[in-house]
């Protein structure tokens, strides 16, 4: 028990800085040290998603963004996983595909938006494609790397045991690449989340957390903007923990190593 308490106290250390900043913000605004149309108190920010008509739109916006990030992320992630598997395993695919993907990756993600809106218009399709693109690159790179690093001795075992092609994929290559794929998944999830919000913000129309923040900014509603930003961060934390849980559930043999 003593150990548990000590560990509990230690884990609180990380909260010191944010709580300090929050107290400072609260003091500065409630004592009236800083005034102006753009200055809001922490209480206003916390209250706005519940008490304000425009603020209440936050929940629907959050739901829409989450659905979008999951749909787009799944599409882009699966394509990245497949492409990474092929280029990781086959020389021909690596020679044909990798140089192109690695070059396209150098283009800053948000530079795609003008092009995508030209191709897919200002609606849902562009946002989904952009989210998919954000998830694609990290998973592609991680899978390619992971498959290439499958230990040669284990490949020998597969060949000695005459494993079928399907068994080799499901029981050797994919599990061996999983640690690398998990790192890719964590990066991909955050990248897709940033991509979703960024696309919503840049395109502006339709529902979503990004558009919610953009419209708050247009109305000079700092409470709405800040509530949106905090929700954005919470969404990122939630997605990250989902990715970690998924990783752990899929690799029970690493339980002792965690």
């Amino acid at each position: 028990m003593a150990r548990l308490n000590a560990r509990g106290l230690l884990s609180l250390r990380g909260a010191v800085l944010p709580l300090g900043a929050l107290s400072l913000w609260w003091m500065v605004t409630s004592l009236g040290l800083v005034r102006g149309p753009l200055v809001v108190t922490p209480v206003q920010v916390v209250a706005v998603p519940f008490l304000d008509a425009s603020g209440r739109e936050l929940w629907a916006a959050l739901g829409t963004s989450m659905a979008r990030v999951l749909a787009g992320g799944l599409i882009g992630g699966l394509i990245g996983l497949t492409a990474g598997y092929l280029t990781g395993l086959y020389r021909l695919a690596a020679l044909g595909l990798s140089p192109t993907v690695h070059s396209i990756r150098q283009v800053a993600l948000f530079a795609w938006i003008p092009l995508l809106t030209a191709w897919f218009g200002n609606g849902e399709a562009t946002k989904l494609v952009f989210t998919a693109l954000s998830a694609f690159f990290p998973l592609f790179l991680a899978t390619e790397q992971g498959i290439r690093q499958v230990p040669r001795p284990l490949v020998d075992v597969a060949s000695v045991l005459n494993l079928t092609y399907l068994t080799r994929i499901t029981k050797l290559y994919l599990p061996a690449a999983l640690p690398s794929i998990y790192i890719g998944l964590q990066i991909a999830v955050l990248s897709a989340w940033i991509g979703t919000i960024g696309a919503e913000y840049a395109i502006g129309n339709g529902r979503g957390l990004g558009s919610f923040i953009a419209s708050g900014r247009d109305q000079f509603r700092m409470d709405i903007v800040l509530a949106g930003v905090i929700t954005l961060a919470a969404g990122g934390v939630l997605l990250n923990s989902l990715a970690t849980r998924l990783s752990h559930a899929l690799s029970p043999w690493t339980k002792d190593l965690r």
């Binding site: 001795p153 284990l154 020998d156 075992v157 005459n162 494993l163 068994t167 029981k171 050797l172 690799s251």
Partner: peptide
Amino acid sequence: DSRLLPWKTVIDNVKLG
């Protein structure tokens, strides 16, 4: 070296394939 697949239980390794 034994070259067991770390992600398979002992029995699944033994009957692999």
